[in-house]
Design a binder for these strands. Sequence first.
DNA 1: CTGCATCCGATCCGATACTG
DNA 2: CAGTATCGGATCGGATGCAG
Lengths: 128, 128
Amino acid sequence: METKPEPLRPDMFADPDCSAGLQPFRFGDKWSGMVMRCLEDGRRRFSELRVALHRVTPKVLTETLRAMERDGFVKRTSYDENPPRVEYELTALGRSALQPMNAACDWARTHRPELVAARDADPEHGRG
Amino acid sequence: METKPEPLRPDMFADPDCSAGLQPFRFGDKWSGMVMRCLEDGRRRFSELRVALHRVTPKVLTETLRAMERDGFVKRTSYDENPPRVEYELTALGRSALQPMNAACDWARTHRPELVAARDADPEHGRG
DNA sequence: CTGCATCCGATCCGATACTG
DNA sequence: CAGTATCGGATCGGATGCAG
C-alpha cells in the first residue's frame, strides 16, 4: 500500500448499493464508509477525497478523518512542503475492517430487490 | 420461530462488544441493532423490548420498529384483545441480515484491544 | 399494554468565509 | 493545498403527559 494507486473517479459513489442510501448498515458517521472505499487502494490526498466524496465540505471531511484517525483506522502523514501536502492511508486495523464492511455490502447487493420491494409497499415510501 | 423463546434478560446489553459503544458499525439508527438481537430467538412483545433495551422511551421504540417494519426486517402482529397485545418478529430478510451483523460483531470482538488502544492513545479520549 | 402528542436539548452536517 | 471559524437548518432521540 505504499505506491500511488489509480486516481479516484468522481462518480465512484454513483452506485447506490454501497452508498449511504438504501442499505441499513452504516460505518460510523455519514462519510466514513466512503472514506474507507477511497483509501482501500492506497494513500490519498485531502483534495482527492474531497472530489470523490461528492463535494463534501472541508470541515466535515476533516472531522471525519480526525475521528477515523483517533479510532485507529487511518494514518495521517503531513509533508512539510509548500504548497502543503497531506496524505491519508488505512492502518492495518482499517484494512481489516474492510472484511465485515464487504460482507455488509454483499448482503445489500444480494437483497436489494427485497429492500426495494419493502419500500415500495409502504405508502409513505420514505423515512419520515 | 413460532414458539415462545426464553425471556430477555434485562442486562443483555451489558456486554459492550455488540452494543453501540465502541464498534464503528451501526445497523440503521441507534436501537435497530439491539432490536435485531432481541428478536433473533423469536417473537417478542413491545414491553419485553422496552425493558431489554435499557428503558428506551416508547416513542423512540415505536419509531424504530416502524422503520424496521417499513424496510421489511420486522413483522408486526396485533392481537385484538384487552389489554392489547402486539408481537414483533424478524422476517426472512431480517434474519438474513443477522449474518453480516454477526460478521461485524465478530470483527469488533477480535479487534477490541486495538480499538481500546487507539482511544487511549488519543489525548481527548472521546469523540468531540 | 401499546402506543401518540408535544416539547426540547444534543448532534449532525452543510454553507460560507477566511488563513498559513 | 489543507485546513479553521462561524453560523444555521435538519434530524435524532429523550422527557413528559395523555389515550384507546
